[in-house]
C-alpha cells in the first residue's frame, strides 16, 4: 500500500512540475550575438528610426514606492500591462485594461479620443500630432552632442546585448559618475537591434537588486495593422466631451511654475519651486493631490516640512509652501532648500 502512495505522490509532484513548466513565465534569455556599436551610433540610429506599424503588449513593473494618492491609484506599486498598436504617421491605439473596465486611447493622426469604459465617457481632442518629433537634420551631430552632455555626469556605454520580447537588443547603460549624490544606480535602455526602437527601460536604485521601474514590451510584432484600429466612433450611450483647447503655440506640457530654480546639475539636480497656493473658497483643482498628509515631518535649516521618500528620489514640501524634488537622498534635498 505504501508503494502506491509513493506512486501517487510522485504523480502529483510530476503534475505540479508540469503546471509550473506550462504556466510559469521566467524563461532564461540567452544573449544574442550582435555586431558592436558605439553609444553615439546607437542613439543616432534611434533618432532616425522608422519602425513602421507594430503592435505589442507593454508591461509596467512599478516599484517606485510612490505614496498611494486617492486621485491616482494606478501610480502605486504594482504591475500593469497595456496593449499598444501603432500605425505609424501618428496613428495609434492604447488599451489599458483593468479588472472591471478599460481605458482606450485612440489617435488617427489628427483627432485623439480617450474612452473610459467604467463611466462610458469619451473625450475628444484635436490638434497637432501628440508626439511630433523634432526634425533631425543632423542626427549624428545631435546624438554626439547628447552623449557629450551625458558624459559630463554619467558613464555611457553599450553594455552587451539582451533579448527583450523575443527580439535581440543592444543595452545602453547610463551610470552616474561616482561624484553624483543620487539614489539612482543605473538606467538601462534596451534598443531593438533591427528596428532601433527602445524596447525596455529599467531604472535601478542603490541598495536594491530589483528594478524600481521597468517599462518594456512583453511581446511586439512589426507589420501592417488593421486601419480600423485607429478610428474611434463613440458607441451609443456615451457621454462625449471635448478636451479644453490649448492655446496656439503653447507647449504640450504645462511648464514649470514661475520661480522654479534648480540646484546642482546632472543626476543630483534638485528642483525647487513654490507650490501654487489654493485660491480662497475654491477646491483644489482635480488631479492636484493633497500633499499635507503624506510623508514624514522633517525640520532643518530650511524650516519644517514633510519629506516624501520613494525608491527613486525624495521630495520635501515645506510648511511655507516650497517644494524641492530630486533623485537624491533626503539630506541633499534639504541642502538644496537651504541654499535658497
Amino acid at each position: 500500500m505504501r508503494r502506491r502512495w509513493f506512486g501517487a505522490a510522485g504523480a502529483v509532484v510530476a503534475a505540479g512540475a508540469v503546471v509550473a513548466g506550462v504556466v510559469g513565465i521566467g524563461t532564461a534569455s540567452a544573449q544574442p550575438q550582435l555586431p558592436p556599436v558605439s553609444p553615439e551610433d546607437l542613439v543616432a540610429s534611434v533618432m532616425t528610426a522608422q519602425p513602421g506599424p507594430f503592435n505589442g503588449t507593454v508591461g509596467i513593473d512599478n516599484e517606485l514606492g510612490l505614496p498611494a494618492l486617492p486621485g491616482a491609484p494606478q501610480l502605486g506599486n504594482g504591475e500593469q500591462s497595456a496593449r499598444v498598436w501603432s500605425g505609424g504617421d501618428g496613428k495609434g491605439r492604447v488599451a489599458l485594461p483593468s479588472g472591471d473596465g478599460e481605458k482606450t486611447l485612440v489617435s488617427d493622426g489628427t483627432t485623439r479620443w480617450a474612452y473610459d469604459a467604467t463611466d462610458r465617457t469619451a473625450t475628444r481632442s484635436t490638434g497637432g500630432a501628440p508626439e511630433q518629433k523634432d526634425p533631425q537634420t543632423d542626427p549624428a551631430g545631435a546624438s554626439a552632442q547628447i552623449i557629450g552632455e551625458l558624459r559630463k555626469t554619467s558613464q555611457v556605454a553599450v553594455d552587451g546585448t539582451a533579448e527583450v520580447a523575443g527580439r535581440s537588443a543592444y543595452t545602453l547603460v547610463l551610470t552616474p559618475q561616482p561624484t553624483e549624490r543620487t539614489v539612482l544606480r543605473e538606467v538601462r535602455v534596451a534598443v531593438d537591434a533591427e528596428k532601433r526602437i527602445p524596447l525596455q527601460l529599467t531604472v535601478l536604485t542603490t541598495g536594491s537588486a530589483t528594478p524600481a521601474l521597468q517599462i518594456g514590451f512583453d511581446d511586439v510584432t512589426f507589420g501592417p495593422q488593421d486601419p480600423s484600429l485607429f478610428t474611434f466612433t463613440p458607441p451609443p450611450g456615451t457621454t462625449v466631451k471635448d478636451a479644453p483647447a490649448r492655446p496656439q503655440g503653447a507647449p504640450d506640457r504645462q511648464g514649470p511654475p514661475a520661480g522654479t530654480t534648480s540646484v546642482g546639475d546632472g543626476w543630483d539636480r534638485v528642483v525647487v519651486f513654490q507650490r501654487p497656493a489654493p485660491q480662497q473658497g475654491q477646491q483644489a483643482p482635480q488631479g492636484a493631490p493633497d500633499l499635507s498628509a503624506l510623508g514624514t515631518p522633517v525640520t532643518g535649516p530650511f524650516g519644517s516640512g514633510r519629506a516624501i521618500t520613494t525608491a527613486v528620489g525624495t521630495a520635501i514640501v515645506t510648511d511655507d509652501g516650497r517644494v524641492a524634488v530630486g533623485a537624491v537622498p533626503e539630506p541633499v534635498v534639504a541642502e538644496a532648500l537651504g541654499t535658497r
Binding site: 474612452y115 469604459a117 450611450g237
Partner: peptide, 8 residues
C-alpha cells in the same frame, strides 16, 4: 455588443 474598448 458595446465592448469595453468602445467598439461595437
Amino acid at each position: 455588443l458595446i465592448t469595453l474598448s468602445g467598439t461595437t
